[in-house]
Computed example of a mutant assay.
Amino acid sequence: MANIISDETIEYVGILAKLELSDAEKEQAKKDMGSMLDYIDKLNELDTTGVEPMSHVFPVHNVFREDVIVNGDQRDIVLANAPEEKEGCFKVPKTVE
């Protein structure tokens, strides 16, 4: 294990994560973080020349449709159902004085 995590680092991470770790949990966290860093070092050894960078493992396409107006301006049809109308809008009772 080439990456050795110091006690100060574990304390700092615990403060940032707002965790209260016991001594046994701190030792386990040091081992776990060291293992993670070792794995990252191992991944850095891979030859990635010619590999195109990607943002997602699966091909992601825009799934949103274009915003197309299909029913147009139907103000007269909608206002035909209004109990009262004023200047092309619904007229509602006054609620605030």
Rank of each mutant, 00 (worst) to 15 (best):
K91N: 09
F64G: 11
M54I: 01
V70E: 15
K30R: 11
G88D: 07
S35I: 00
D23H: 01
V63T: 07
L19A: 14
D73P: 14
I10K: 03
N62L: 00
D67E: 14
S6C: 07
P83V: 14
F90D: 02
E25K: 05
R75K: 15
D23F: 00
T49M: 03
S35G: 10
L16K: 06
S55W: 00
V63L: 07
Y39F: 09
E45A: 00
D32H: 07
F58W: 11
T95W: 06
L43H: 00
L79V: 12
V96C: 05
V70N: 14
D7P: 10
P53D: 03
E84Q: 13
G88M: 02
G50S: 09
N71C: 14
V63N: 06
N62A: 02
K30W: 01
V57C: 04
S6A: 07
N71L: 15
P53E: 03
I4T: 15
E52G: 02
D7A: 05
L16C: 08
H61T: 10
K18Q: 13
P83H: 10
T95Q: 09
M36D: 04
D47H: 05
V96W: 05
E87T: 04
I69Y: 06
K86R: 07
P53M: 00
V68R: 13
K26E: 00
P83I: 13
R65P: 06
T48W: 04
L46A: 10
T49D: 11
Y39P: 00
V92T: 02
K26H: 01
